[in-house]
Design a protein around this nucleic acid. Structure first.
Lengths: 121, 121
DNA sequence: ATAACCTACAATCAAATGGTTGTAGATAGC
DNA sequence: GCTATCTACAACCATTTGATTGTAGGTTAT
């Protein structure tokens, strides 16, 4: 029941990290160009520490990675995490497809009863 | 700067709603079968009111919709919201592709300077 | 009508979030 | 060496979240 595995926690972190406009913007920027943490901070009106925390959160969700360059940390967007999120979304549509398949199966085998009780939408 | 439009708020709600294992499970269940709110509540160890609030949150994110059937409310998963989330993820990979394209363009026009300073990865 | 059930909503509470300031450690440049 | 810059991290604060219990209204069935 809601298993609460490591994968689930990672899914939590992923979607949680994406649920903030500043963080989404950071992901986009760091996908497009190289940014140090302070360079990112200059893009927003919030404090450096706030941006730093956003980056840390994104890093925990594996949406970005940091690598040191001299005294600064270069933030880099990670497409694999996006792929992971996409696969998670696929799971939802997969179970939806199961419903459709089941519905079709009932439609194509009307030997038992008429589908009058079918309350589609 | 981080525009904060209605679309952005909807994206916030969408990802926020997905950032919880119980809510993700509710979405899957309601995609697969019809569930009343109380039928959903019976699937989890938490209180009815807690599940009710989860459903309200999912409804605000348009991930599910409710329709009354007698005294109960039937919760139904909505694939369109999943598609919306997928499109949002597409945006990230789109800007990433821009980076790749730009990188290719530089590689194919080495007339200016040698790309020795290129710090790939 | 009465009992049982489903839902809605308010009040409450602990924990997490998003933000701030301040302090301290490294590194780069003069 | 000294200064400016970049980062990390702690402490703190307001708001939100996730959950609870309790109350009330509506629907179904007996």
């Amino acid at each position: 029941m809601v298993v609460d595995s490591a994968d689930e926690k990672q899914a939590d972190r992923l979607f949680r990290a994406l649920a903030n406009p500043t963080r989404r913007d950071i992901v986009k920027r760091s996908m497009r160009d190289d940014y140090s943490v302070s360079a990112l901070a200059r893009c927003y009106t919030t404090s450096f520490a706030a941006v730093q925390k956003h980056v840390a959160l994104l890093e925990a969700a594996r949406l970005v990675s940091k690598r040191p360059r001299g005294r600064e940390q270069i933030v880099r967007g990670n497409t694999e995490a996006i792929e992971t999120a996409r696969r998670l979304l696929d799971q939802f549509e997969e179970v939806w497809r199961e419903r459709i398949d089941l519905f079709d199966k009932v439609l194509n085998q009307p030997e038992k009863e008429g589908p009058d009780a079918g309350d589609q939408h």
